[in-house]
């Protein structure tokens, strides 16, 4: 199963520091029960055209403290819903990081990644090694390996699937 996570490919969508959960999905949309309807508002404040340009498999690349603020699981959920295959940031707020793996969205920590990656560049991500290869420049960046606990969650398909495996 792990080979699912050693070559995630996608185009980079680059963001800055402190993209908090209200910037990912605003509080006023949290009463929408349908994730598809909610996801129409992904990154609405910071990048109003995001849902129009995003393509299946795209990778969100961000600077420091991605996903700070609210504990809302809706934040990684809308990213998954619009087709994001992986989020790479220089650092994550802890609740977002945990939530992402819980719902089966890979997250990788790579220091200074926003200095090297530009919008639209094709990336190859290896979660097991914690590396990112930038296609255009052939530059490889080394990040932190994803902890085994988190890889287990991803391999199972998220925390609920992992829980079902544990009890069966």
């Amino acid at each position: 199963m792990l080979n699912l996570f050693n070559d995630i490919k996608g185009k980079a969508r680059v963001f800055g520091d402190d993209i908090n959960t209200d910037q990912i999905i605003q509080g006023r949309y949290l009463t929408l029960l349908d994730y598809k309807a909610m996801a129409e508002h992904t990154f609405e404040i910071v990048r109003p055209d995001f849902v129009e340009i995003v393509e299946q498999g795209d990778i969100v690349v961000a600077a420091r403290n991605f996903g700070s603020g609210s504990s809302r699981e809706e934040a990684p959920m809308v990213l998954k819903q619009v087709g994001i295959s992986c989020v790479i940031a220089e650092s994550f707020a802890r609740i977002f990081y945990r939530n992402a793996f819980n719902i089966g969205l890979p997250a990788l920590i790579v220091p200074e990644i926003t200095k090297h990656v530009s919008e639209g560049q094709e990336l190859h991500v290896d979660l097991v090694q914690g590396t990112v290869l930038i296609d255009e420049t052939n530059m490889e960046l080394k990040g932190s390996c994803v902890p085994q606990r988190m890889l287990d969650l991803l391999t199972a398909g998220g925390a609920v699937a992992w829980f079902k495996q544990q009890i069966s």
Partner: peptide, 25 residues
């Protein structure tokens, strides 16, 4: 199920916020 659950530390407790999946578990 709320990030401000850290509040209860004022009562000498360990408390933290998590989201839907962890709350369900």
């Amino acid at each position: 199920s709320d990030s401000h659950s850290t509040t209860y530390g004022a009562f000498n407790a360990f408390s933290t916020g998590l989201a839907a999946t962890d709350s369900a578990l």
